[in-house]
């Protein structure tokens, strides 16, 4: 019984290892590109964070959130996003694969096409984003004097937000199975990240609904932060991994409908 369960798991583990090795080998080929990538990322984020300080020179709070709390959210959002960016960013390349006719290649192999696409290219530059995210987050954590015990929640929240982003990008890229067009709807994931770093209460109602129920990015940083700052009951944090897992599963179901449509029309 255990052996029966262990075998597919072991196979998957082997697959992961091989894909990782391949991506790292590739990275080594373009090592200078990697270094420049990380450096430019640092610069662009430094500018973004400075602008936050600049805004708070004029106002003391946004919708009841102080600079430190906003920084906390910013860091948390960036951690989840950078994890997504490293492992799942290739999901937004689907339109590219379809247009070049390369998607067929994934259909010819005995493992899930979505898994192959994810593994086909990591974005190692996002390690820079992860470092920035962690730095800002730790700074805000210390400044806000949040209890150390909550540290254990962070990996769970970070992983959950990574999967919420993954679900979002998968749902968005599914569109290209139907359109086969130049419009990369999936790039919208980048815009969503920018929007998710502020409390959703500052947006109109319709956006609040969209970000809670359709693309649940409110669960990435807003709800966990609000819970930790006692703005909402703390137990609501438990919803985050549930929503993440459910949404990710749902996104794959939607994606499979797209694959079916693709096979029916042979675009």
């Amino acid at each position: 019984m255990i052996k029966k369960l262990w075998k597919p798991f072991k196979r998957k583990l082997k697959l992961y290892r091989q894909y990782f090795k391949m991506n790292l080998d590739e990275l080594e080929v373009y090592d200078k590109d990697f270094i420049f990538g990380v450096v430019s990322m640092f610069i662009s984020y430094a500018a973004g964070i400075l602008s936050l300080f600049f805004i708070f020179d004029f106002v003391h709070e946004i919708n009841g959130w102080t600079l430190k709390q906003i920084l906390f959210m910013y860091g948390l959002n960036l951690i989840g996003y950078s994890l997504w960016s490293c492992f799942f960013i290739n999901t937004i390349s689907l339109p590219y694969y379809i247009r070049r006719g390369e998607f067929d290649r994934f259909l010819l192999r005995p493992i899930e096409p979505i898994f192959q696409i994810m593994m086909d290219g990591f974005d190692e530059d996002s390690w820079g984003e992860l470092i920035i995210g962690l730095a800002v987050f730790t700074y805000a954590w210390i400044q806000l004097e949040i209890s150390v015990w909550y540290v254990f929640l962070i990996p769970i929240i970070a992983l959950s937000s990574c999967f919420i982003y993954a679900g979002t990008s998968i749902v968005l890229s599914t569109v290209s199975f139907f359109t086969v067009s130049q419009a990369d709807v999936a790039n919208f994931t980048f815009e969503i990240r920018e929007l998710a770093q502020y409390p959703i209460t500052i947006y109109p109602k319709i956006f609040q609904i969209i970000f809670t129920f359709i693309f649940p990015v409110a669960f990435v940083a807003f709800f966990p932060s609000a819970a930790l700052f006692d703005k909402i009951p703390i137990w609501l944090i438990a919803l985050v991994p549930i929503v993440a897992f459910g949404y990710y599963k749902l996104s794959k179901l939607i994606w499979n409908i797209g694959v079916k449509h693709y096979c029916g029309t042979g675009t």
């Binding site: 697959l15 091989q18 391949m22 080998d25 080929v29 493992i111």
Partner: peptide
């Protein structure tokens, strides 16, 4: 169309296929 990784050696790609 190719199923080999352009930047790496054929052997690397074959190792990946072994896992797949």
């Amino acid at each position: 169309r190719t199923q080999l990784n352009w930047d790496l050696s054929t052997m690397d790609s074959l190792h990946l296929l072994k896992a797949i």
